[in-house]
Every structure is written in C-alpha cells, then in structure tokens.
Computed example of a mutant assay.
Amino acid sequence: MDAVPELATGLGDPVALARVITAVVFVGIGITHFVPPVVRGMAAMVPRAFLGRPFSPVGWVWVTGVAEIAGGLGLLWEPTRAAAGIALAVFLVCVFPANAYAAQHRDRFGAFAVPFWPRLALQVLLIVLVLWVGLAG
C-alpha cells in the first residue's frame, strides 16, 4: 500500500503533506456524521427538496459521512487518488445546497450556519484543494 510509505517518508513534499492533512480532515469530519448531536444538527440542514429522495435527513447525513471518509482514505492510496479527488470535488458541489440553506437560516443552525459568501469561498477553495492533492503527482 502506497499510503504508508507516503506517510512515513513523503511528508517533506508539500503536496504529500497537504494530501495527508486533507485526508485526515475529511475522514475526521466524516466520522462526526455518526455522532448523534451532530447528526441531528446536520439532518436539520437537509433542504426540503431532498427529504425522502431517496433518504431520510439522517440517511443523507450518514451517506455524506461515508462519502467523506471514503474520499479521504481514497486520497491516500495512489490507485484511487485521482478518482477520490474528483469525487470529493463533486461531493463538495453537491452538499453546497445544504450549506446555503443553513446560511439562510442562521438563527436556526448557529455554528453550522457559516454566512453564504464566506462559505461559498471556502467551498471553492476546498474544491481546488481536493483536485490539487488528488491530481498532483
């Protein structure tokens, strides 16, 4: 497995370091999608258009958690790295409606509700980041 040598010896390379940090962050955030208080907050962010299509709000939270964990792990293994970077970029586009919905309802979502424009900028930066660490050699 390529991930172990990269973790042990490749961290002097800025791309490898960014890749590992990005992977750890995505796996960590993905894990939080299974913590009950976080699940409740995130489930409330699911826009009405997605309710029951095809998952319940909690189901959407779990699916997105699995996607984040899989994407993060995929960045660490060279054969899946490019696909993981692209999949995470698509994922970040797909989850943005929930973030925009939360931004419109800051009084209801508190810390989950990053204002729209900063969240959009962050989302674009994250997309650039996952593509960079996923596609860079």
Rank of each mutant, 00 (worst) to 15 (best):
L76M: 15
I86K: 13
W132E: 01
T22K: 05
G59N: 06
L129T: 00
H33Y: 04
V90R: 12
Q123N: 13
A23Y: 11
F50G: 02
L75A: 13
T80S: 15
R106C: 12
D2E: 03
D107I: 02
I127G: 07
A113W: 00
E6V: 15
G52I: 01
W117K: 07
E78P: 03
R40C: 04
V20R: 03
P5C: 15
F26D: 11
V95N: 08
F26R: 08
V128W: 03
L135M: 01
V124Q: 07
V15P: 06
V63E: 06
T32P: 01
L126T: 00
W77D: 08
V133S: 01
A43P: 05
R53C: 03
V128I: 04
A82T: 03
E78T: 05
V133Y: 03
R119S: 06
V4Q: 03
G74E: 14
E6W: 05
F96M: 09
A102V: 02
A44R: 14
A3D: 10
W77S: 13
I31E: 06
H33P: 03
I29C: 07
R108N: 10
H105L: 15
T64Q: 13
L131K: 03
V20I: 07
W132H: 01
Y101H: 14
N99Q: 15
A3G: 05
V93S: 12
M42P: 06
R19Y: 10
G28S: 08
E78N: 00
T64I: 12
L76F: 15
A8N: 03
N99L: 14
W117E: 11
T64F: 10
L51V: 10
L73F: 06
F112A: 09
A87K: 14
V114T: 04
G72F: 04
V27N: 11
